[in-house]
Simulated assay, not measured.
Amino acid sequence: MPLIKNKYGKGRVRVMRIHRDGDRHEVSQLNVKAMIEGDFARAYTHADNSTSVSTDTIKNVVNIVARENTSLCTEEFCQVLATKYLDTYPQVSSVAITAHETKWSRLSFGGKPHPHSFVLDGNGKPTVEVTATRQGSTLASGIDGFTFMKSTQSGWENYVKDPYTTIKETNDRMCATSMVASWKWSAKPENYPATNAKILSTALEVFGTTYSSSVQDSLYRMGEAALAAVPEISEISMACPNMHFIPMNLSAFGLDNHNDVFLPTDEPHGQIECTVGRG
């Protein structure tokens, strides 16, 4: 029976690029599928892998091109990636690259764009919870899945070390989370939506503009600032699963990686939670 058509490749290759222009960072997070066609029929029909390129290699090429092209937009990046496969492997006749971008928007504080702090586009779902009895009621507002990130000015040092510890200390890492937060109202504000926005903007400014010794450190200070800015709330609770960005080891390809190319992953994740109140 004839083999009518074949193609193969690597899907869900997640990559985050950071391009540094002085203190200003540009970030690009992509989910890439790279599919190749060409002289591969004998791998299917004769168990002959002599012309086949490993799908792991196909993934490595994505990361190599990412490291060599941190500044390209998604369209240009995909074009360069396709050309890389064609130039490297003569047995490849065609390449199909699909990339889905996770869009990060730059945060601004005081009307000034921040160099390395970002928020996810189309972000978060506002929430409200009312508990009522005949004796009274409580009201809480919040947001679910509110995602933000900074590409530097975060660290993790001086933690417990034991025989089970493998993570290395750092004072320069990416920090990102998809936060679930709620705050309890003790008085009615002049305007609920405007005050909710003020709570979020206050917390984000603390996160984006100050060094983070840990997610725990940032969350507590974000809560403090929100309570100080909005007297109508009595406490604020935040639950923050880490969105990890793991630096890719490209040394096997003769490339350095000084926090330029990362593997985005959210499983397993650190789960950091706290409630800050007025005492």
Rank of each mutant, 00 (worst) to 15 (best):
L3E: 05
E224R: 13
I36H: 07
H269A: 12
E224M: 15
L72I: 00
K184R: 12
E101I: 03
N249R: 14
S105H: 12
I272V: 14
E169C: 07
A96C: 11
H100P: 04
L200F: 02
I246V: 14
L3S: 08
R221T: 05
S105I: 09
R14H: 12
D217R: 02
F77D: 08
H116L: 02
G279I: 09
K33R: 09
D172W: 01
W185Y: 08
W156V: 08
I246C: 14
S154A: 15
N63I: 03
G208Y: 01
P163Q: 02
S117K: 04
A225P: 00
D260R: 13
N49K: 10
D217L: 04
T195G: 10
T127F: 11
G136W: 07
M179W: 01
V119E: 15
Q216V: 05
T209S: 15
E235W: 02
E205V: 07
P268Q: 02
K112W: 02
V15F: 00
G124C: 03
T74R: 12
N6C: 11
Q135G: 12
A176R: 03
Q271M: 11
A82L: 05
C73D: 15
Y85H: 13
N242H: 15
V128P: 01
Y159S: 04
E76C: 07
V206W: 01
K150F: 02
K112F: 07
M16T: 10
V32Y: 03
N31M: 11
V13T: 08
H100A: 13
A96N: 15
I18K: 03
A140P: 00
S237A: 13
M174L: 15
V206P: 00
K7M: 12
P193L: 06
G111C: 11
V119I: 15
V95Q: 11
F118K: 05
V32A: 13
D144Q: 14
L107H: 02
M222L: 10
I246E: 08
P247R: 06
M179P: 03
R14P: 05
L219Y: 00
I199R: 08
S94W: 06
V95E: 07
W185V: 04
K5D: 15
